[in-house]
């Protein structure tokens, strides 16, 4: 498949670099020429309405969809050519509730420790470490089906963190969670980032979250980046005292008939929300 060489890179190289990122499902263009660079160590938010192309962009960056060579680099590694090395650097949390409810919390995390080749001698300790980080050490031996929605999200976060990724990619990490659980998830992400300098790439619908937690934001609409900057830059760029939600509306308008994976997107979101109760 791909080479496994980890290339050392200068500090200035971005964590994620997209150049002319494009993807079409049949005739529907979901991502239509996106250029962006996520700096190492920042929390970068990808915002946009349903069907804007956020999830497709994430799927291209995570090697789930085939990208063309030169389109995406993760820490200088070409996603099309060095898939295995890219995956080793990434922790990924999909939008859906993806923990296995029939396994215990510990077993869920252990699986990912194995899949990332955490050596057996370190595995137990490392699994315990990340479970403590997300505040689930006490519930580790319980099956995930007994967890609340917020606990499951934190368990999934532990799964994504067990390999100590340099880049954490989160697709709607707090969808369907109550405000307290949302804070719980974000607090853990912030803690790990402070401790390790990990880069975070996140998509979200929640403007308040993006405002509060993201260092920089890219506003996507119809497969393109419409605006890019820090939350305060974006707000003051519109008018003094504007909220991020107003910026969002200004760029995306109120069009209802979006092309692309609208239906799938909505269905997935609803399913996630209903499973969280």
């Amino acid at each position: 498949m791909s080479t496994e060489n980890e290339t050392a890179e200068p500090a200035s190289r971005p964590a994620v670099a997209c150049r002319g990122l494009r993807h079409a499902f049949g005739g529907a263009v979901a991502v239509d020429g996106v250029d962006l660079a996520v700096a190492e160590g920042e929390i970068f938010g990808l915002l946009g309405p349903n069907g804007a192309g956020k999830t497709t962009a994430i799927r291209l960056i995570t090697t789930l969809l085939p990208a063309r060579p030169g389109m995406v680099e993760v820490f200088g590694l070409d996603v099309a050519r060095q898939r295995m090395a890219v995956r080793r650097a990434i922790g990924y949390l999909p939008q859906q509730l993806s923990a296995d409810s029939s396994l215990t919390g510990r077993e869920n995390v252990e699986l990912f420790a194995r899949l990332f080749d955490v050596p057996r001698a370190r595995r137990r300790e490392r699994v315990h470490e990340v479970l403590s980080t997300v505040g689930l050490a006490g519930a580790a031996e319980r099956r995930a089906q007994t967890y609340s929605g917020g606990m499951i999200r934190r368990l999934e976060l532990a799964q994504a963190l067990v390999s100590a990724p340099r880049l954490l990619i989160l697709d709607e990490p707090t969808i369907g969670l109550d405000p307290v659980a949302r804070d719980g998830v974000w607090d853990r992400i912030q803690e790990v980032r402070r401790a390790t300098g990990m880069t975070v790439l996140v998509t979200t619908h929640y403007m308040d979250e993006a405002d509060q937690h993201c260092d920089r934001i890219a506003l996507m609409h119809r497969g393109r980046v419409q605006a890019l900057g820090t939350p305060s830059e974006l707000k003051s760029g519109l008018e003094p005292g504007a909220t991020l939600e107003e910026v969002f509306r200004a760029y995306t308008g109120d069009q209802l008939d979006e092309p692309g994976d609208d239906f799938r997107d909505a269905r997935r979101t609803r399913r996630t929300a209903s499973r969280l109760g």
């Binding site: 050392a8 890179e9 500090a11 190492e40 820490f75 080793r88 650097a89 990332f116 080749d117 955490v118 050596p119 370190r122 490392r126 470490e129 990340v130 963190l161 390999s163 100590a164 990724p165 340099r166 790990v192 401790a195 390790t196 300098g197 990990m198």
Partner: peptide, 12 residues
């Protein structure tokens, strides 16, 4: 090497 997230011998 860039700062490694979490622990000294990780990533692997």
């Amino acid at each position: 090497a860039a700062p490694q997230a979490g622990s000294a011998d990780l990533p692997l």
